[in-house]
Nucleic acid binder design. Sequence first.
DNA 1: CAAGATATGTCTGAAAGAGGACATATTGTA
DNA 2: TACAATATGTCCTCTTTCAGACATATCTTG
Lengths: 122, 122
Amino acid sequence: MNQYKTEHVWSMNYLSEQFKKEIVQRITKNLLDIQILRLIQTQPMWGYKIKKQAETKFGVRLRHGALYPLLNKMEKDGLLTSRKESKGGRVRKVYTITSKSEECLEAYRSVLREQMKNSDVE
Amino acid sequence: MNQYKTEHVWSMNYLSEQFKKEIVQRITKNLLDIQILRLIQTQPMWGYKIKKQAETKFGVRLRHGALYPLLNKMEKDGLLTSRKESKGGRVRKVYTITSKSEECLEAYRSVLREQMKNSDVE
DNA sequence: CAAGATATGTCTGAAAGAGGACATATTGTA
DNA sequence: TACAATATGTCCTCTTTCAGACATATCTTG
């Protein structure tokens, strides 16, 4: 851990990490649907797994009381399709992304690219 | 405008543009402080100009009743410094970014880079 | 067998946020 | 001389959002 050698450098990195953490949390909170799509894009997933993944990956508490209604809404809006899978007697609702959500993700990446460059003011 | 030749292609691009517009609006709304920093980073700016710039660039209505308290809060938090400039008898509060806000912007770019790649699920 | 984890759902009171009004002053323009 | 634009600020009400409770059922592990 070379970058933590001096207190000065430590505090600089610590502040940056704090900023990053906060930004990730705000993005996860406000662009939750897109984060869900990003997770499901890599592999089909059910609500409970999405919750666990988001919590470990994004460091945000994701309440199932908010997640499940959102997943149902996204399916209604054509951003997800689901199939029921039985693991024993326990039923999982496995979600897969759609062509519409792929367009949404492409639009998101496009916005990210724009956000990367410094907006040139006249 | 070659890409708008057929209705099919038109509707595809239209949907993507709709997604983009919506995402930009949501980011501007929820990460307004960072968007303000992005604007001021290019050149020092006062509230009224920030409002006009954000409205034309991001396509979002920005109420001054929300903007001015936020700018004051950001200055209090050390993310902005201001100096008063008189243009005739009219006083402008010109804001400049700080080292702290530069760190914040760097953290933001770091998050953007992470968001670009597909999160690899185990 | 009991407790914790998995799995999905609804609902409500409280907190946060947004929209628009209220407030004031100057400058440019028709 | 009005009216629109520039410029900055506060405040209140309405709406949206959110955290946590309520609800149910199965599976796993000690």
